[in-house]
């Protein structure tokens, strides 16, 4: 590793001021778990890292506002999401997902902001955040803006964040009483591996009928994406397994899986099929 400049600003504004919109070798670092892997592999050589470790306040908070929306600060470690009673109550699928996300050592250090801002398609939470209709608050030199989770992931390791913007928080809207969500993770190597396929489903149902559903897939694909055809296939259908099969079939047709050491394109397509069905079953039984 080649030496670089490490800055540890004490406020969000200071941190943003240290970012450089034109220099890709200047980056923020939160837990460092993703960035260090890239640095060790020689894929990223920073000239300057802006550590967020001294930033305090809402960035580290989990709270529910007066509308019932769940606010998750960007610097909240994944282990806190896993264990927080508020998260368990308002977004149980998030707590559950964190339990099989990597291992306890990584979760203690890795932050939600780094997890999302990395734009790595192999992460577990992005499809779930999409399914839950989450929004991200980004702060930059020109102020703040809101980005829907579904619009955040624009390509392979690419997000909608500008180089001089920081993610401040993720907000998960209050769930309606008739909705439920689930995430299913499929690993091809060790159990604590990155997913080979991850599928999230959020369904609204009434009297055995799916009013609407949001389905999102990650890991198998270039970026986390919504499965529009599968969502359409299930809308207005009963919560029987037959209609889940149709959605699964549609999903298998619409995805374009990328082959890697965790599976071939053909295999991942099959796993999308299986796990869309399993995610729907899990969501409609939770």
């Amino acid at each position: 590793m080649i030496p670089f400049d490490l800055q540890e600003p004490a406020s969000l504004a200071e941190a943003i001021a240290l970012l450089d919109p034109d220099d890709p070798s200047v980056r923020p670092v939160a837990g460092g778990t993703a960035l260090m892997l890239m640095m060790k592999a020689g894929l990223f050589q920073p000239t300057r890292l802006i550590s967020l470790r001294r930033l305090e306040g809402d960035l580290r908070r989990v709270h529910v506002d007066e509308h019932g929306d769940l606010h998750l600060g960007a610097l909240v470690p994944l282990s806190k999401l896993e264990l927080s009673p508020l998260v368990a109550e308002h977004a149980p699928a998030v707590s559950e997902t964190c339990r099989t996300l990597s291992n306890v050592r990584v979760r203690n250090v890795a932050t939600l902001g780094g997890h999302v801002a990395h734009g790595d398609p192999h992460m577990d939470l992005p499809p779930l955040l999409i399914a839950l209709g989450a929004r991200a608050r980004a702060v930059g030199p020109r102020g703040e803006r809101w980005i829907d989770a579904a619009d955040l992931f624009v390509g392979y390791y690419q997000t909608a964040l500008e180089r001089d913007e920081l993610l401040a928080e993720i907000v998960i809207p209050a769930p309606s009483p008739d909705s439920s969500a689930a995430y299913v993770k499929f690993t091809a190597l060790s159990a604590d591996d990155w997913p080979a396929v991850g599928v999230a489903a959020a369904v609204r149902r009434r009297e055995g009928v799916i009013l609407d559903a949001v389905l999102a897939v990650s890991a198998a694909t270039e970026k986390p994406i919504r499965l529009a055809a599968a969502e359409a296939a299930i809308r207005g259908k009963s919560t029987s397994s037959g209609s889940f099969d149709e959605a699964a079939e549609a999903a298998a047709h619409e995805v374009e899986p990328l082959a890697d050491i965790r599976g071939s394109t053909a295999y991942k397509r099959e796993m999308v099929r299986v796990h869309v069905r399993r995610a729907l079953i899990k969501a409609s039984h939770s």
């Binding site: 291992n103 190597l189 060790s190 159990a191 604590d192 050491i261």
Partner: peptide, 16 residues
Amino acid sequence: AVNASLADYKIPGILD
């Protein structure tokens, strides 16, 4: 070698 690291060469974890 395309997976020459513990990130992509997976040894068993406690859950395995």
